[in-house]
């Protein structure tokens, strides 16, 4: 369709009043609130559907290994052994999870493991609110079962550490 551009009037063409209009706009912007978040001191809380770091639940997991099968780069390592337990006088065979490791440094957070998980609610899920995953050592990003379940308890990042303190999160890891 035909678009009509507004024809500049004489005053717009020969005077510079439009430039002053622009200056007025930028001057108004000067006093408007700023969008910058000064990160270590203040931080944005992600929304409820934010997809962040993994969370794992040992209690819900039925050790079916579907997540490891679904993983496109095979970074979920699961070891299982069978165990017999007595329940109401009957002997029953259950799978017991020995090892559930995720090599998060190679993970692309595609969430196919979450999709594959048959339990309800999911025993591995990514809708957590953590995005502070940076470490000083790449081996720190290899998470075992306990770490995957309890990483929320580790301290948050509050800026660079002091000179003598070692910038490692190892000591603060639980159950290692």
């Amino acid at each position: 369709m035909q678009v009509e551009y507004p024809k500049p009037s004489w005053s717009q063409k020969f005077l510079v009043l439009d430039l002053l209009e622009g200056l007025k706009t930028t001057f108004r912007e000067l006093f408007k609130p700023k969008v910058t978040v000064r990160y270590p001191e203040e931080r944005n809380e992600p929304t409820d559907r934010f997809r962040g770091m993994f969370k794992f639940s040992y209690d819900r997991c039925i050790a079916c290994k579907l997540c490891a099968v679904a993983c496109p780069i095979d970074i979920i390592y699961i070891d299982v052994h069978d165990d017999m337990i007595e329940e109401g006088g009957k002997k029953k065979k259950v799978k017991v999870l020995d090892r559930y490791d995720i090599d998060v440094k190679r993970c692309m957070f595609c969430a196919l493991c979450e999709e594959a998980c048959p339990t309800k609610p999911k025993s591995i899920w990514l809708t957590t609110k953590t995005y502070e995953l940076a470490t000083y050592d790449r081996n720190d990003l290899y998470f075992n079962m306990q770490e995957l379940e309890y990483w929320e308890d580790r301290p948050r990042y509050t800026g660079l550490p002091e000179e003598d303190e070692k910038p490692r999160l190892d000591e603060t890891r639980l159950l290692k």
Partner: peptide, 21 residues
């Protein structure tokens, strides 16, 4: 005159402006 021009309310646009296609 300049100050008066800046202080006035902008006139409503006639026709379709490119930004309103």
């Amino acid at each position: 005159a300049t100050v008066f021009y800046l202080g006035r309310k902008p006139a409503p646009r006639k026709g379709i402006h490119a930004s309103r296609v």
